[in-house]
Nucleic acid binder design. Structure first.
Lengths: 246, 246
DNA sequence: ACCTGAACACCGTTCAAGT
DNA sequence: ACCTGAACACCGTTCAAGT
């Protein structure tokens, strides 16, 4: 967002001075993509950059601010182009783009959904566009807040769960045990679970042992966003007294 | 909440002896409800219990396992009673119960949604009941997985965002600054945002400075789950070739 | 301006030792 | 069986000092 193109005008820094905020953020993203959020530390990042831990604090105020920067980078391409098309199609593309952004940095899923998106830290262009689309769709001012919240929850809700971390599992023993317990579920106590397990195992929340990285829920996601959009359509129609003009 | 009334009484030679797994989990929940997840530590918990940090490891294998225990406790009352009623009503109660459970331990919101619910660690009675309700609703075996995933994502998605933590804000300065930036948003660049701000501020994702604890999104939540249920209704109906028999 | 280096106040977890 | 106590390998962040 902030253009830092002109800062230390053409004066080359020291030979070893490769450090910069974008470089730090990029290196941090690499580390997190590789090792996950729990393993990420300022000290580890400094080591990866070949620098003392405290050097980072010249560019970044603290760890949380650095995480926020990473989320901003990860959110870069979520906004669909504003070209005219049915509002349903625009929303679908928004949802798919957000999912794609999260899938590129799955270890940031919870951070993106439950912290940055649901709160501040998002480019105001995104909410502005969403409001525009909902306005075109025919939502009244009174309904606008709720439709907006439904859009955001639909966008981030499913995906935050889908790419949430599976239980820590260094040797794969948990996955095998859990898998076995699913396949041998007591058919007397849990008849439907037992009957549907062939289709549920590793393809549904709760009954999976891998997350969206290894076992993406593509079809479920598509039907989920379709359901949400149909639900929005109904709410809009129900309040309408006069046919749409545009 | 935690009664630490008995301290030096009852002639116990040792200080504690009150230690047990349920007591540890309860004390941990108290600490997290008060100070949040970031501030929670095994050492702090031990201190609150008047015991050496390593004593906890006799009852709990590690920190993550303890967090999982807390989530299990927090999820206690989410399952609606199985008494007969329309499937839409049953789902609505499930969604509301989950929201209520999270609202009681908001600092566990991300843990509950993005980790335990979306993955393992949930009583199989819950998925069994959901399958039963969806079966009664008329979903085919082919649709079942997707309908199930839609239910889980609807249940946990909105609420995980709603109770996600607002930016760390010790002195309230961020909230004031952000609030001001919302109210003075550039009406030329963001006309819809500016026009709708009176209804959006602190009542919508992104444009709020408090989370669901202080600023619950009750109405939006209700409309969100209604939209999801209507979407499900349509998907079921669309596939149906014969009228329902029940 | 940019980085080193020491230091502070913490962590989770192990292991041996006590009772 | 249950807890103490020392110890290990870490943390984030501050601050003074170097260049």
């Amino acid at each position: 967002m902030a253009g830092r193109s002109l800062s230390a005008n053409t004066r080359r820094p020291k030979a070893a001075g490769n450090l910069s905020k974008p470089a730090i953020v990029a290196a941090a993203l690499d580390l997190i993509d590789r090792d996950g959020l729990e393993a990420f530390s300022m000290r580890g990042l400094a080591q990866a950059l070949g620098v003392y831990p405290t050097a980072l604090y010249w560019y970044v105020p603290n760890r949380n601010a650095l995480l926020a920067e990473m989320v901003t980078v990860a959110m870069q391409d979520v906004l669909p182009s504003p070209r005219k098309r049915p509002w349903q199609a625009w929303l679908k593309e928004l949802f798919r783009r957000y999912r794609r952004a999260v899938s590129r940095h799955p270890h940031l899923a919870a951070l993106m959904g439950a912290q940055m998106v649901s709160n501040a830290g998002v480019d105001p262009v995104l909410p502005e566009q969403i409001l525009g689309v909902l306005s075109r769709a025919g939502f009244s001012d009174r309904q606008m807040v709720h439709a907006f919240n439904t859009v955001i929850a639909t966008m981030a809700g499913f995906v935050t769960l889908e790419f949430g971390p599976a239980p820590a599992d260094d040797d794969g023993s948990w996955a095998k045990t859990f898998q076995h317990s699913l396949r041998t579920v007591d058919a007397a106590r849990f008849p439907l679970l037992a009957r549907n397990m062939p289709r549920l195992e590793n393809r549904a929340f709760i009954t999976r042992w891998q997350n969206g990285v290894e076992a993406p829920l593509d079809d479920s996601f598509e039907l989920f966003i379709e359901a949400a959009i149909h639900g929005l359509e109904l709410q809009r129609v129900r309040k309408r007294r006069t046919p749409p003009r545009g």
